[in-house]
C-alpha cells in the first residue's frame, strides 16, 4: 500500500490548497443544517411532556457537548501524528482546535446551567456530566496555556501534542471516577440527554444541529489553520503568492 496520500497531508502547501477548496462547502453545509435544525427544533418540535419548552436548549447543548469531546480526541490524534510523523500541519491543528474546543465546552456548560435553573432550581448542580465537562474545560485551558507559554513554536506544538495525548488517556478515567463519585454522593436526577424513546420529531432536528455543528467546526478549524499556515510559512514562496493573490494581486512583490 502506498503511503504517499498520507504524507501529502504533511505538506503545508498542499493542505492549504485542499483546505481552501473544502472550507466554503463546509461553511455552506453548516449554514443550511443549522438553519433547518434550529428553526425546526426551536419553533416546530413538540414540547417535552415533563420539561415543557426548556428542553429545547438541547438543540444547542448536545451538539456543543459532543463537539467539545470530539475536538479533544481530534487534538490527541493530531498529537500522535505530530510526534510520530513530525508533521507541522498536525501541530497547527492542535494549536487551532484548542480554543474552538474550549469555547464549545464553555457553551455546553453555559447552556447546561441555563437549563438547570428551571429544571433543578439551581444554576449549577454537581452533576456527573456537568462536572466532567468542567474538567474538560480545565484540560483545554492547560493545552492553551502551555501553547502560549512556550516561546519556540515547534516546541510549543510538540509539548501540546504530548499534553493532549496524556489528557485523552485520562479522560475516560476522569469520566468514570466522576460518575462514580456523583452516584455515591447524590441520588440519580433526570438527566439532560438520556431520554427514553425520544420521538422522531424531537431527535431529527437534533441530528441536523449536531451535523451542522460539526460542519461549522470543520469550517472554522480550516479557516484558522489556513491563517496559521500562512503565518508559519511566511518565508516560503507559496505563502507569499497566496497572500498576494488574496490581496487581489494589487501589491507589487
Amino acid at each position: 500500500m502506498s503511503w504517499t496520500w498520507f504524507h501529502k497531508w504533511g505538506s503545508p502547501k498542499w493542505f492549504y490548497a485542499l483546505a481552501g477548496r473544502l472550507q466554503p462547502w463546509l461553511a455552506l453545509a453548516a449554514a443550511l443544517l443549522l438553519a433547518v435544525g434550529v428553526v425546526w427544533g426551536l419553533a416546530f418540535a413538540p414540547p417535552d411532556y415533563q420539561q415543557g419548552n426548556s428542553f429545547r436548549i438541547i438543540y444547542i447543548h448536545v451538539p456543543a457537548a459532543m463537539l467539545a469531546q470530539s475536538c479533544y480526541v481530534l487534538m490527541a490524534l493530531a498529537g500522535v501524528v505530530s510526534l510520530v510523523w513530525k508533521m507541522k500541519v498536525a501541530d497547527i491543528a492542535i494549536h487551532c482546535a484548542a480554543p474552538v474546543g474550549a469555547s464549545m465546552t464553555a457553551l455546553a456548560l453555559l447552556t447546561g446551567a441555563i437549563w438547570g435553573k428551571p429544571t433543578w432550581g439551581a444554576w449549577w448542580v454537581w452533576d456527573a456530566r456537568l462536572t466532567s465537562m468542567l474538567i474538560l474545560l480545565f484540560l483545554y485551558a492547560g493545552v492553551i496555556a502551555l501553547g502560549n507559554a512556550i516561546g519556540n513554536r515547534d516546541s510549543a506544538g510538540k509539548a501540546c501534542a504530548v499534553l493532549s495525548i496524556v489528557g485523552v488517556v485520562n479522560i475516560p478515567i476522569i469520566k468514570y471516577s466522576v460518575q462514580w463519585w456523583s452516584t455515591l454522593h447524590q441520588g440519580a436526577t433526570f438527566s439532560l440527554t438520556e431520554k427514553p424513546a425520544m420521538p422522531a420529531e424531537m431527535w431529527l432536528p437534533l441530528l441536523f444541529t449536531v451535523l451542522g455543528f460539526y460542519c461549522l467546526f470543520g469550517a472554522v478549524l480550516l479557516a484558522r489553520m489556513r491563517l496559521a499556515l500562512l503565518q508559519r510559512e511566511a518565508r516560503s514562496g507559496w505563502a507569499q503568492a497566496a497572500v498576494r493573490q488574496a490581496l487581489g494581486g494589487g501589491l507589487a512583490p
Binding site: G151, N152, R153, R232, R235
Partner: peptide, 8 residues
C-alpha cells in the same frame, strides 16, 4: 536547515 522563531 535550521529555523528559530521564523528566522532562518
Amino acid at each position: 536547515a535550521c529555523e528559530r522563531d521564523g528566522r532562518l
